[in-house]
Design a protein around this nucleic acid. Structure first.
Lengths: 231, 231
DNA sequence: TCACCAAATATGTTTGCACATATTCGGTTG
DNA sequence: CAACCGAATATGTGCAAACATATTTGGTGA
């Protein structure tokens, strides 16, 4: 009968009242017990519904003080970051990968700082191109901490991308990401097949596992690339 | 005694087992009933813990089939989009705002499509600069649907930004956002105080309320700006 | 052998209750 | 009047039980 769970209906109903303006920003909303009476259900069910509204950032709740519609909605948006190959194939293109450069040695200071490594520590550096059909989809610059990924120095990255290797060998890392725009250097322009100075969309990630830095990766996308999301 | 809720401890414990590699990608994890026994609690408490792990994208669950560690973790990252003034002030700068241009008329086709308006429909167009101290922080191009925001044509936007006005008058809208990089046009470069062709970080939003488009806003940030987030 | 159906099973939802905890509110006392 | 303290109260957590629902599994019969 109840095709959709009743807490979902309650949550949707209350969301509607808020979005529709019936309950305005900053306003107090009824107590769990009263809502339970109105919807003829248990308080726990109302609690479940209200908790999802908290997760959505629509209401705030405090013990004894009650629940209120947020005064100013904090806009949040979630982006899903797919595996590059999946992203390309999902768009209907053939995925390609080419290792451009590979070497070991001390990384640039900026990378060393982000990875919190000792001065002089050597890391593996990879530069690679990702293709959608025959055109360059993104340029990857990657530094890998060999101390955190045993055996990585022996891996042949000409056939498998660092990302896919790391996902298999060091899953469930945490990290930080930053998005920015950058002008293409001459080398980047040549590899991506764009004009020098073109506006690239760049993502830069550091990932950690258990307190030690695994890798720093920078991905640069040619003009036209965009990241979309619901808000 | 239980300073932290027990479902949180259970959730953290299981997360640790997954991140630590004890339970590997794709592997089945024990049933709720068994975990409840192990942690000496009710099944509902385990259920609560596992549901948060689903929200985190660490496990997937299916009725009768049980719970599994995800095979490949789908990376998700959430960005908070602050009010421009708050963003600037949080960075310790003085916020400034200047309306550059204002006119009414049919919008560009790209904007008209995003707002799903009739051809020929007139919208309000605003161009404004946001400052951090004395330097330009972002350039805003905005189109507002006067049919969705009654009275907006009479508002003087030289003192209040469109964003703050809309947040007060049309809170709780939904929408879409897209992030990209763009080369500064001559006009953009002049207004932002950068060189023509500089790589700008651009965000573009459409917001809806109850099925009708409210506004399209494009924000262009000069080189150096970046959006950061946990992953 | 294959299609189909029924039983088994793990998760999902809801209830009613009890107690925990944070925070407000109001009164008392110095 | 101010500081403090205790009562009141709304939300937070936990439990046990029951039922709902999706999905697998295994058996049955054409």
């Amino acid at each position: 009968m109840a095709r959709t769970a009743s807490w979902k209906k309650i949550s949707a109903e209350i969301e509607g009242r808020i979005r529709g303006g019936a309950w305005k920003p900053g306003e107090r909303i009824p107590r769990e017990a009263d809502l339970a009476e109105e919807f003829a259900c248990a308080r726990a069910t109302v609690h479940r519904a209200l908790r999802t509204l908290v997760d959505q950032g629509l209401i705030v709740r405090r013990r004894r003080a009650g629940s209120r519609v947020v005064k100013t909605q904090v806009r949040r948006t979630e982006f899903r970051i797919p595996i590059m190959r999946h992203e390309v194939e999902a768009a209907g293109h053939a995925y390609g990968y080419r290792l451009v450069s590979r070497k070991s040695g001390p990384p640039p200071a900026s990378v060393r700082d982000r990875m919190k490594l000792e001065p002089g520590a050597a890391v593996l550096y990879l530069e690679a191109l990702h293709f959608a059909d025959e055109t360059a989809h993104a340029l990857e610059n990657r530094w890998i901490n060999p101390g955190a990924v045993p055996g990585v120095l022996d891996v042949d990255f000409s056939g498998v991308s660092a990302n896919e290797y790391l996902v298999r060998n060091v899953p469930f890392s945490t990290g930080e990401i930053s998005l920015s725009a950058a002008s293409a250097t001459k080398d980047e322009a040549r590899l991506l097949g764009v004009s020098p100075g073109a506006a690239l969309f760049a993502t830069s990630r550091v990932t950690w596992s258990d307190g030690t830095a695994i890798t720093v990766a920078r991905l640069a996308y040619p003009p036209g690339y965009e990241l979309r999301s619901r808000i």
